[in-house]
C-alpha cells in the first residue's frame, strides 16, 4: 500500500483518459441554463401602472421612469447597468416586471442596451 502512494493519481488519470471529457467545447455548443436563471428583464406591459416601486428599489439605477402624467409614462431599462438581481420582480405589486432565463447577445453598441419596457401615451 505504501508503494501506491508514489503513484496515487495514476488510476485516476487512466480512468479520466478512458472516460468522456468533463469539459464542453463551449462556443460550438449551447449551454443549458437553469429555469431560475436570471437572464433578462421582461414586462407584462398591460399590468404596469407606472408606480415606480421597481425604480426605487433597483440597486443599480438600471430602471428609469419618465412620467408625464398618470396615464403617460415611459419605463426604460438600461441593460448595461443592470445586475440582474431580480429585486424589481420582488418589488412589483402588480405582477408586471419579471425576469426570465433567456439572455441576449452581447453588443458593442450602447444603444443596444437601452430598452423601453413600457411606453404609454394617453389616448387621444
Amino acid at each position: 500500500m505504501k508503494l501506491r502512494s508514489y503513484f496515487y493519481l495514476l488510476p485516476n488519470i487512466v480512468r479520466a483518459f478512458f472516460s468522456k471529457p468533463d469539459t464542453v467545447n463551449y462556443p460550438s455548443i449551447t449551454l443549458e441554463v437553469a429555469d431560475r436563471f436570471r437572464g433578462s428583464v421582461r414586462i407584462k406591459a398591460q399590468n404596469c401602472v407606472g408606480c415606480s416601486l421597481c425604480v426605487r428599489d433597483c440597486p443599480a439605477q438600471a430602471l428609469e421612469l419618465e412620467k408625464e402624467s398618470k396615464n403617460s409614462f415611459r419605463l426604460i431599462h438600461y441593460r448595461d447597468r443592470c445586475t440582474y438581481c431580480g429585486q424589481c420582480e420582488l418589488s412589483c405589486r402588480f405582477d408586471a416586471i419579471f425576469l426570465d432565463n433567456e439572455y441576449d447577445e452581447p453588443s458593442s453598441n450602447r444603444a443596444h442596451f437601452i430598452v423601453t419596457l413600457v411606453e404609454r401615451v394617453p389616448e387621444e
Binding site: V33, A34, D35, R36, F37, R38, T83, C85, G86, Q87
Partner: peptide, 12 residues
C-alpha cells in the same frame, strides 16, 4: 446552486 437559486455565484 444555479438550479435552486438561479445564479452560480450571485445567488440573490
Amino acid at each position: 446552486m444555479e438550479e435552486i437559486s438561479g445564479g452560480r455565484v450571485s445567488h440573490a
